[in-house]
Design a protein around this nucleic acid. Structure first.
Lengths: 124, 124
DNA sequence: GACAACCGATTACACCCGTAATAGATTACG
DNA sequence: CGTAATCTATTACGGGTGTAATCGGTTGTC
């Protein structure tokens, strides 16, 4: 994959809006959702365009934007970088930390235990 | 707490070396461990000093450095920021992702399951 | 005592980032 | 048609970051 696109903090906000949308949306849709300064948000969209993280289709003078990279791919990339930076690449240490630190509902806990159980036998 | 010190990527490498050390160490110790350019590493130490993330004691012309902020505090801060950025603040979603994505030894899995079990009853 | 080696401090520099204003084109309205 | 509104594109700018070279002082060595 020729893709290690790096998405900044503020750009993540924009990407999450795009990923959550059911289809292409306009810059103003993003602005309305984020309730941030319109100029600023449009700058982010532009930078994401340059990076190849989003695509657009022009209708009249308005652009309709959509993600060009998958959320999952970006989450994985960002996660690996975080893991390397903060935990020196040790995933178990990271999980221990988060399990300790996170506020989880009983249902969440149940879900995670199930996942771990599968992981235990299923392997992979 | 007057402390939301922000530590950059490259600075984390330095901090991890300091945290892992049993006591104060010199800039050259850090250089030797990281095997990065000495000038560069020293720049990082200087910036960390300015930020108040490390302290030093001069012995002769050599400085002996030690962390001034706890690893745990920094990990927590960084973790929260990551959680907000990538998962919009949903800890369960993050854990599910990492449990799925991480390579874990059977012992790791066992450990995590135990932690979750405690969390389930003990709460908090 | 002179000079080389070495150390931390200062300076450099290009790029990214958050934040936004301005410019230029196009459209909508009266 | 002319003017106002509205898009996107371009430009701005201060601060952080990765990367490193230079400066100025101290120290160790001959």
């Amino acid at each position: 994959m020729p893709h290690p696109i790096s998405i900044s903090d503020a750009e993540w906000d924009v990407m999450r809006v795009l990923w959550d949308a059911p289809g292409p949306i306009t810059a103003n849709d993003v602005v309305d959702t984020l309730k941030q300064n319109a100029r600023t948000t449009k700058t982010y969209l532009n930078r994401l365009l340059k990076k190849g993280a989003v695509a657009f289709e022009a209708k009249g003078k308005v652009y309709w934007y959509s993600p060009r990279v998958s959320r999952d791919e970006c989450v994985r990339t960002e996660g690996r970088s975080f893991l390397a930076r903060v935990f020196g690449g040790d995933p178990a240490a990271m999980l221990v930390h988060f399990v300790r630190d996170a506020k989880l509902s009983p249902a969440d806990v149940e879900h995670l235990r199930k996942l771990l159980k599968e992981k235990e036998k299923g392997g992979r």
